[in-house]
């Protein structure tokens, strides 16, 4: 067979492989382009539109009336509006504060748990892991709701504390920042434990034995070996908690007070109550801009874990 024939064969193979790959790759690719990426372009567009009393309630940013080159009738008013009204800035800062504190709390509770599960004897390990995953499979909404009955003024916790004689007036535990923290830490704790566990479980036991053999005390071994090696797990877990917590709506709505300002709740209200879609879009874009950095960090570490796995 001639060299030309070989080239033809190669090209045919490549074409065939290419088409087979395309069949696999294209459906998810197009789906995500259409239903994930395109919506963000629209949000971006809308965030620079003017509100109008219509359906949909905004004006087009491009006026196609006079031919091929549309006039830009967009406005950055919605963004400047976010800075003129205290509400938004305060809501942003408050969301970040709440998400940050919750993430740290999740890490402080989740790390020892993940560590304990990873070090537990084999038969226990799977059972404990299942106990972490199980709440994650049951209704998030109803689990948050369960805290109302626990935390309210005549709720279980207050009744218990009064019954034990520790306090004689019910503590205000519901509808304030405290209950929001409890709700977020409670809801997102499994998201912190799982990546940490995955990281700690595959850690080579002989590294710890080597450290011990070289004379390191257990806590020194932990600080010098275990902790640095678990950084990818810590980052992944923290991002899985922090990013969605910033935009959390259900928890502040159900457990927070009327003055618990979080940006997810503000967005919801702008959209559903004020029906100001452009401002809601501007709120979303502003939130997204702030979250881009953590999202990229998350993807970076996610990619790293994938590489390590393969």
């Amino acid at each position: 067979m001639s060299a030309g024939g070989a080239g033809g064969l190669g090209a045919r193979l490549r074409a065939r492989l290419f088409s087979q790959r395309t069949v696999v790759l294209l459906p998810p690719y197009i789906w995500l382009l259409l239903f994930f990426l395109a919506p963000f372009v629209i949000v971006l567009k809308l965030s620079i539109s003017e509100a109008a009393i219509a359906m949909p309630p905004y004006l087009p940013i491009l006026d196609w009336a006079d031919g091929l080159i549309p006039d830009f009738t967009g406005t950055f008013y919605n963004f400047s509006f976010l800075f003129t009204d205290d509400l938004y800035v305060v809501a942003y800062l408050n969301s970040i504060k709440i998400a940050l504190v919750s993430t740290i709390a999740c890490l402080l509770i989740g790390y020892p748990m993940a560590y304990g599960i990873a070090k537990a004897p084999g038969t226990w390990r799977n059972a404990l892991l299942m106990l972490v995953i199980l709440p994650f499979w049951t209704s998030f909404l109803i689990r948050v709701y369960a805290w109302i009955g626990i935390l309210k003024n005549n709720g279980i916790l207050n009744n218990l504390l009064i019954g034990l004689g520790i306090i004689d007036q019910p503590l205000p535990m519901l509808h304030n920042d405290f209950s929001v923290y409890v709700g977020i830490v409670y809801s997102y704790l499994p998201f912190m434990i799982l990546p940490l566990y995955a990281n700690l479980a595959k850690m080579d036991e002989s590294l710890l034995e080597a450290a011990a053999d070289l004379g390191a005390k257990p806590w020194k071994t932990f600080l010098a070996v275990t902790l640095p090696l678990s950084v990818p797990g810590i980052v992944a877990g923290s991002m899985l908690v922090f990013i969605p917590a910033v935009g959390e709506f259900v928890i502040p709505e159900l457990l927070g007070g009327p003055d618990t300002l979080m940006i997810g709740r503000v967005l919801w209200n702008e959209f559903f109550h004020n029906r100001d879609w452009p401002v809601a879009s501007a709120v979303a874009i502003a939130m997204l801009l702030f979250l881009v950095v953590p999202i990229v960090i998350f993807q970076h570490y996610q990619g790293k874990t994938d590489e390590a796995a393969s």
Partner: peptide, 17 residues
């Protein structure tokens, strides 16, 4: 990105589409 994207953003964006 959808793994961590806050629901309110995804919801709003998808609705607008």
């Amino acid at each position: 990105a959808p793994l961590v994207m806050p629901d309110v953003i995804t919801g709003l964006a998808t609705l607008l589409l």
